[in-house]
Design a protein around this nucleic acid. Sequence first.
DNA 1: AATTTTTTTGCAACCGGTTGCAAAATTCTC
DNA 2: GAGAATTTTGCAACCGGTTGCAAAAAAATT
Lengths: 334, 334
Amino acid sequence: MAVTLKEVAELAGVSRSAVSRTFTDGASVSARTREKVEKAAKTLGYRPSLIARSLATNRTKLIGLVANNFQNPAFLDVFDLFTSELQKRELRPLLVNLSGETSPRKIVELLRQYSVDGVIVATSTLPTSFATAFQTAGIPVIHTFGKFQANANVHVVGIDNEYCGAMAAQTFAERGYETVALLGGPESATSTQDRSAGFVQTAKKLGLDVAKVSYAENYTYQAGRDAMRQVLDEKRVEAVFCGDDLICMGAMDAARAAGQSIPEDIGFLGFNDIGMASWDSYSLTTIRQPIRDIIMSSVELVVGMVENPGRSPEIRLFPCSVIDRGSLRPVTDS
Amino acid sequence: MAVTLKEVAELAGVSRSAVSRTFTDGASVSARTREKVEKAAKTLGYRPSLIARSLATNRTKLIGLVANNFQNPAFLDVFDLFTSELQKRELRPLLVNLSGETSPRKIVELLRQYSVDGVIVATSTLPTSFATAFQTAGIPVIHTFGKFQANANVHVVGIDNEYCGAMAAQTFAERGYETVALLGGPESATSTQDRSAGFVQTAKKLGLDVAKVSYAENYTYQAGRDAMRQVLDEKRVEAVFCGDDLICMGAMDAARAAGQSIPEDIGFLGFNDIGMASWDSYSLTTIRQPIRDIIMSSVELVVGMVENPGRSPEIRLFPCSVIDRGSLRPVTDS
DNA sequence: AATTTTTTTGCAACCGGTTGCAAAATTCTC
DNA sequence: GAGAATTTTGCAACCGGTTGCAAAAAAATT
């Protein structure tokens, strides 16, 4: 079925190497040969087989994307950006769905078998060791949305979660809230831990009372709604910082269902700024995570690693910002 | 870096074929040899290279997923199901993001170069010719969410959009609505066209007045919100059938912003039943498209085609159902 | 125990490309 | 126009597996 190098070579009356060279950039072929080959290739409808090329060059142009959050709309952006960024560079995304919770070893094996050129582990819920496993196997890896550590041995692209937690506390303080609560994402996620730490610490420093700390079981509306019940038990809470917009929306609806109005009775601060945050029904004030920058940077970095494996681990953090909408009361002029 | 067949063979003291055979199921190896090989493989940490295998067998175990709707949450389910279904079968998803609107020829070439074993074109907005292009190139293809035609020459898995349109009209009639509107998805999408046709036709048959037909520019909240303005101009409209839940939510918010309450002043019927449809703020009555069934069936079918290419084109349609929530008034006892 | 049947094994060719190397062809110098 | 320098070309080995075929080994039959 498929046309091969050999057939083109025969038709063009040149050697196989000549054909190979016309299709490899940076190789030396005379204009005359190139022309002959291109003509032959065209009449035959030849396309080099990337599989064969991969075998010979030991490069597949495949980049793995490991994700475990296929419920959260924030990941639509991730998929969209990731795939289109790769396509621009003539690379292909190989998706791995971690939801079935497979072991790191297995996943590494899997991607190693496909000889992906590099991997982006896009999750904030896994320990760094997961990404490191690829490193150990000699596969260039970026831990996107990952936890950064000063003694990093793996590239991390994301945000400073602890600082973002602090931002949240600051935001509450500026608006004159005094008794607040934290409704985080899954407690095991490193991002949750860091944000909580930053939030609680700074809240204390600013003299806020963190009356309740509670965690949603996962990044869903329902989990947020459920977890909010506990927060509502603590009557004094004036504002809630949620670990994710989706969770936050669930929490808001729980509050409303309990007869509270937003932001008059209770305020909400979300995280991520997903598209829905700006919808009328929520009009959510939230901390925006620059997903676009993060993904573009991750792709750029993984490509860089493939080309230059010796590169030393880098941490790239992007600033988050508060997007002011209607779920918190306005800043008080103090 | 990577351990090869040859090294394992040497350590185990057998031929390369023997090693190959122990890792190919259905091949004949004695228990004794298998054992020796497995031991050697283990100590060396050997994994067969799928690239090399692909070259030899002409099978890559890669399945392409071509999509062009990376904004709609409905596609999160698609990605999730697609990837996990493939993983179960030891196949890998290769994602192609069509949003950059590339030509069919280019996409076909792209996937042909990677020698994907099969392709699932998951979009309702493209003409059938797109999927057919793969067929012509000899690549097994399924057009998921596609338009089915009696004289099909390509496999289609999805729903009967025309019938769904009719269901919508029926649903309105049952609830005693008399003057209704259609707020479809992009006009160029085949699914929109079919649903509109079914809706308008059946509405007429049932004696409903379709006072307004309008289309959103794309499958987004904002587009729905914008398009709803035109519908609101037509004061008499009692209920709106939307081509997509996301569009519908935008439309609902536009109606509310105009001071109408749902379902008292105006009713809404969505399409898809995405997770958000059940959220308190919308509580959307909608026509549920069984995405899970559709994707599982598509994967099954594409796998079947790979194994048995001669298979003749099949159309698989799944029933949709009305999920009754709070955005339409109740069924009238007539 | 000899013969026949069945199973296992290794050889060698092949999948479709790339690439180092030396020979051939071209271009440049004087 | 001869010789040196440079560019282009083809050969052949290689990437890491699979597989048809015939020989060898094991099992079954008598």
